[in-house]
Amino acid sequence: MALAGFRVLVGLAILGIFPGVSPEGAVGADSHVRAKRASLTSDASPSRAQARTTSPTGIRGRLDIRRIARPVERRPDTAATGAPGPRDVPDLRHGVVYLDTAPRSAFDEREPARAVMDQLNERFVPHVLAVMVGTVVDFPNSDRTYHNVFSLSRAQRFDLGRYAAGKSKSVRMDRPGVVRVFCDIHSHMNAFVLVFNHPYFDVSADDGRFALPAVPPGNYTVVGWYEGEARVSRPVVVPANGWAELDLVVP
């Protein structure tokens, strides 16, 4: 009986079915290093950065987060025979600004992008990642311990299993939505991947500044998102030639 059960387990392992995990699945340390050199967020790619400065139109401003969230504490581990090692706390100063509805041209087919969410000192870096549908997100493990990245979000369910330092696994984000990312081993580790079906979004900078370049002229609603919720929205008019200025306050 036990042997039969074990055979079932082994058979399932060979099948290796993990929905959401891209064919790249596990990639080696070399590609991990290459991925780290790549942009941390898709909006920081060269073409987007260039668009920020050369685009004749767009929306820019500041996302003012009045109350920065506190990092999630470790669960009290009373069963531990000693204190856990040191960890870094996530940088929670960043929100995401995006267009609620996008112009038709936004849905033109684009080259699939690649982004990185690292795992370092028991935190995901960055804490918030914004990407377009089709982007492959690499989750390298740059820590000294095992991690197990997973998400049970409706937008993207995946479980990358346990993997060690120097290894990386990746997920192709196939549907728009908010993907809450966790580590199955370290319950305080959490992060967000916001997946959009248009390119008009930006992760706010340390000082709150954001820019949505190349937004065609017209009327739009801009949304400010922070730590799991769309917290503020404002209408905005993008002029035929020039940038619309907009400040958003997250109370």
Binding site: A2, V8, L9, F18, P19, L152, R157
Partner: peptide, 18 residues
């Protein structure tokens, strides 16, 4: 004691202990 777990899909696992 011998036990094992296999994650079949996100959020779902099978386990066996003898």
């Amino acid at each position: 004691l011998l036990e094992g777990r296999y994650k079949v899909a996100p959020g779902f696992y099978l386990a066996l202990r003898g």
